[in-house]
Design a protein around this nucleic acid. Structure first.
Lengths: 249, 249
DNA sequence: CAGTGGTCTAGACCACGGA
DNA sequence: CCGTGGTCTAGACCACTGG
């Protein structure tokens, strides 16, 4: 009798099983444990056999769940060693590379955190009702000590109200893990829209360029499970010395 | 005794098996058949059971190979119906959407096809030796009848020499299928680098904008199996009414 | 209804890593 | 050496599709 989630059940194989595939249930359970920092990054999970015993399923079913999480970038498996939690957050995966191919980690300076009534496009992206409020965070991000990105983060006030009161200096550099840890909403996917736009007066001031300079606009919608939108992020990047990289295969 | 490729073998399970995983061999074989137009897009492949019999492996092994090809986007499976060749491969490769989310099929007008000695950056991308020649194809692409993309395609002359003699009007709108059909090189992956740049005089002329207008530059390297680079494509897109979309999950 | 893919099991052997 | 994940098998039942 498999023991994963509190779902409704039906009998097959002469036993009780959840209607959704077992490996989906197991994935959810493991995902929840990952979100709850059950294991530290780099730490080894129990072996397939142990997990199979715990969930009362066959090794193959656990394997299927683990494989999916590996594809999602949450776990890494090593023959002979074990299955480990991925070191560097996979979803905050930063796509900007220096022209020579090196990936730099951006530093952030938070300019302000404020609350407003959501605009039409913010409501559309975050699936909010009319009149709902959002928290906006404005940041400048530095690559190699030079300001290269002006970034606005938009969050549903209902979900993230406590952020309002945080001191701008205390906002972590990478916020996806922060959302997961503080608010229990893991970011598992995103939808990005890119455009080339002209730098506004404001962009120009913070990025030390002339207004009208071409900027790469990245509108990124981070999503949790079941496509629930979590965070809207609009970045304006100076791509004179960097490029945005996208791989497929 | 599995029967896939002409690889060296070793005995396990008391039988002869290839050193590489069986499902990899099967993938390659199916991939070759797909490249050879063994099945038409939309056509159903033999069932898992038939394929398992043909390759003399278990159903699970065939399934593993098919699943991988589904992830690659080459096949689509439908419970109760069968496994089909994906209908529109080129569509899956085109990322530009209209602001309202609709995806338009771009029209192309080929401006010229010419041959040159490869530049440094072209050699780097296509992994060519110094002094090698490349074919350059310049196109303007139209969305909703308006010129929106100025595109340069760069191909190794060694691989694609016959293209040189093709009349510009006969070059198909979507060339990936063309490469596969005419030259036997299937495009299975790509690496894209995006930047925001200013329109040059030439861009401006063809796209009917002022020089200096921000354009989205997409440098796309199309690759065949084993990361072999096939085609370098540099597109300059006017993103006043469109955006480039990237999904992750 | 028969045939397809989707899920799951139980068990086998192999290749790799670390003690 | 043992325990890990990686591959493979044979067979079961389910859910869906089509005639």
């Amino acid at each position: 009798m498999p023991v994963c989630g509190p779902d409704s059940s039906t009998t097959i194989y002469g036993a009780f099983v959840e209607k959704r595939p077992l490996y989906e249930e197991i994935k959810e359970t493991l995902l929840a444990r990952l979100a709850a920092d059950h294991w530290r990054p780099g730490e080894l999970l129990p072996s397939e056999i142990k997990l199979a015993e715990e969930f009362r399923v066959s090794q193959g079913t656990v394997r299927r769940a683990l494989d999916d999480l590996v594809v999602q970038g949450l776990l890494a498996r090593h023959q002979g060693r074990g299955t480990a939690v991925t070191q560097h957050k996979p979803f905050g995966f930063f796509h900007l590379f220096r022209d020579d191919g090196v990936r730099e980690l951006p530093e952030s300076k938070t300019l302000r955190i404020s609350t407003h009534t959501a605009t039409r496009s913010e409501r559309d992206a975050l699936e909010l009702a009319e009149g709902k409020k959002v928290i906006r965070i404005a940041r400048v991000r530095f690559l190699n000590l030079e300001p290269k990105i002006y970034e606005t983060i938009v969050l549903s006030h209902d979900l993230f109200a406590p952020i309002e009161k945080i001191d701008a200096r205390d906002l972590p550099n990478t916020v996806y893990n922060f959302y997961e840890r503080e608010f229990g909403v893991p970011v598992v996917g995103k939808r990005e829209r890119l455009r080339a736009v002209s730098a506004s007066q404001q962009h120009a001031r913070y990025l030390h360029v002339e207004p009208g300079t071409p900027l790469l606009e990245i509108e990124c919608l981070a999503m949790s499970h079941r496509k629930q939108p979590i965070e809207l992020r609009i970045s304006h990047c100076l791509t004179d010395e960097h490029y945005y990289c996208n791989l497929t295969d």
